[in-house]
């Protein structure tokens, strides 16, 4: 009987051990959940980084064509279009690399979000002015994209960037709250 009651009603030390085991089981489960979601966000990181590195590399290889693509928006004078044609592809590539290796991560997310907003606004402005233009975002691959396709792609990338931004903030918060998480 005593043994049974000992099992059903643990002593002070046993109760503490059971509580610790329960807490550590909860912690382990949270850790697993956290790591799983972390892997998912890393996949999104790689996806977004891949898009920008690919787009940047295409434009970097043909800056002359990209300068003409920028000029076709009829927003900037030619010398600035040329300067951007040399500069923007490298900015995209470095920010993409930043996402992959988590170097200057928040800075890269911020710059890429700003870039995609500017690209979207410029494309929308061109459409409103009736300009039939090639955005040049993905070199010749995007030459015949329709305006809705451009818009959908840009908004999809922006949504992914914003999701990464919030997941990063959440990860920092969870990292402080959960022991053993990075």
């Amino acid at each position: 009987m005593n043994q049974t009651s000992n099992v059903q009603r643990p002593t002070g030390i046993n109760r503490e051990q059971a509580l610790n085991a329960e807490v550590s089981a909860d912690g382990a489960a949270s850790n697993i959940k956290y790591r799983r979601s972390n892997i998912l966000w890393r996949i999104v990181d790689f996806g977004v980084a891949g898009i920008f590195i690919y787009a940047g590399a295409l434009k970097m290889l043909d800056p002359v064509q990209f300068a003409h693509d920028v000029k076709n928006f009829q927003i900037l004078p030619w010398p600035i279009s040329v300067a951007l044609a040399f500069y923007l592809p490298w900015l995209e590539i470095l920010c993409g690399v930043g996402l992959v290796f988590r170097l200057f991560y928040r800075g890269a997310l911020c710059i890429l979000s700003a870039l995609i907003v500017v690209f979207t606004l410029a494309t929308a402005a061109a459409k409103l002015r009736g300009l039939d233009i090639t955005c040049g975002c993905f070199g010749h691959a995007s030459q015949h994209w329709s305006f809705p396709a451009h818009l959908a792609t840009n908004l999809g990338i922006l949504a992914a960037l914003l999701a990464l931004w919030f997941s990063h903030r959440l990860a920092r918060y969870v990292g402080e709250a959960l022991p053993g998480t990075p």
Partner: peptide
């Protein structure tokens, strides 16, 4: 600061590329 570092770092290869392509594109 992170954003500024990335912005500044991108300038280096961009200047190199501008020098490399100087004969293929006119700034005027």
């Amino acid at each position: 600061r992170q954003a500024l570092v990335l912005v500044a770092l991108s300038l280096l290869p961009a200047v190199g590329e501008a020098i490399y392509f100087r004969g293929k594109i006119s700034w005027q």
